[in-house]
């Protein structure tokens, strides 16, 4: 049943990735109040491949575990279970720490909040030079400063900005500095955790265009995390839709946007505002994301799904491949919708 088609020689391959966070009450409270241990199932079994040079996007509502996936991949969190392979080398589990250390320089991350992601006490030159120094790519202050100047020009800032502090820049400019820092380590793979969601719409466009241009020029591969479908449509090759720690649908961007199969994907696309007043029938996004501590039984989406039936409440749907579109939904499998 679970015939997930694999990309030929993917750059990054994630299989059955799980991350639970322990949110139990302290030991004494558990003992006296007879509470059980509690876990947030932030990521609960996710598999996908990212091919070299493509942009894979993860979308979903707040709290669905997108950022956790990003942080698992760059090694900020240890996975509870599952594997992460980079060019076929396992880097997920704690035992693979040596391989992780070797692979780590190939990856960089761009963060969401440009006001928190730059150390306020460091000059821009030192911030951008950090990956160069850590990797020992260049020796000599003068050489490093020239490289920093090049990087700043690459991201549309002036080499003279080296001597300034982060607080002297606007949000968009800071995000450019973040990108310059990420590029300084000469990575192949960039994890972008909502890089534009803290920016104005016009500045978002600049940053996205910059990222696209850099991708073309340097042959970068992106994992792009966002909740903004317009942005995702603009940048990605393929898109995965997450709901409560699981991927419910993933496909080529065009296919997914033109012909969404999963009821949740349809709901998300329906929520995009529409200037043409087409009078199109919408299914409003109803309800809240359920608690990931105690997710609904069966298909986690069933309490909000207009197509749910008895089976959805008891049995967890597994992702199935429909001509390259992967969907985890009983209704789609049964041909009731889609």
């Amino acid at each position: 049943m679970n015939d997930v088609a694999k990309i030929e020689a993917p750059l990054l391959s994630v299989d059955g990735l799980v991350r639970h966070f322990d949110v139990s009450a302290p030991f004494l409270n558990r003992l006296i109040e007879r509470l059980d241990r509690a876990y947030v199932k932030a990521v609960d079994g996710i598999s996908f491949d990212i091919g070299r040079g493509e942009t894979f996007s993860l979308v979903g509502e707040s709290g669905c575990g997108k950022s956790t996936v990003a942080r698992l991949i760059v090694g900020l969190y240890q996975p509870t279970a599952g594997s992460i392979q980079y060019e076929g080398v396992e880097i997920g589990p704690r035992e693979a720490a040596a391989d992780r250390k070797r692979i780590q320089p190939h990856m960089q991350m761009i963060f969401q909040d440009p006001f928190a992601s730059l150390n306020p006490r460091w000059r821009v030159a030192d911030i951008i030079a950090e990956p160069i120094n850590v990797r020992g790519l260049l020796k000599g202050r003068a050489e490093i400063m020239t490289r920093v100047g090049d990087l700043l020009s690459q991201v549309g800032l002036s080499p003279a900005d080296r001597e300034r502090f982060p607080h002297e820049f606007s949000g968009g400019q800071r995000q450019r500095i973040s990108i310059a820092r990420a590029l300084a380590g000469e990575p192949e793979f960039l994890v972008c955790d909502e890089p534009t969601s803290a920016l104005d719409v016009s500045v978002q466009a600049q940053i996205l265009n910059l990222m696209k241009e850099l991708q073309n020029r340097l042959g970068l591969t992106y994992l792009f995390i966002s909740h903004d479908l317009a942005v995702v449509y603009h940048v990605s090759t393929r898109v995965g839709v997450m709901y409560l720690g699981r991927l419910v649908e993933w496909a080529e961007t065009k296919t997914l946007f033109e012909n969404p199969r999963h009821p949740y994907t349809r709901m998300l696309l329906d929520a995009i505002p529409d200037l043409e007043m087409s009078g199109r029938q919408r299914i409003p996004v109803a309800g809240e994301v359920p608690s990931p501590i105690n997710p609904p039984s069966g298909c986690a989406f069933h309490p909000r799904c207009p197509h749910a039936e008895a089976r959805c409440r008891t049995e967890m749907p597994l992702p199935r491949n429909y001509d390259g579109v992967h969907v985890a939904c009983h209704a789609v499998a049964d041909g009731r919708i889609g």
Binding site: V201, S202, V203, Q204, A205, Q206, L208, N209, D228, L229, A230, Y233, H234, F257, E258, N259, P260, L269, I272, P273, D274, L275, E276, S278, R280
Partner: peptide, 18 residues
């Protein structure tokens, strides 16, 4: 499911922004 419905996509106007 037309993409043109997605109002936010087009106004991103790449060239002007650059």
């Amino acid at each position: 499911w037309s993409i043109r419905d997605c109002a936010l996509i087009n106004p991103l106007g790449a060239d002007m922004a650059e």
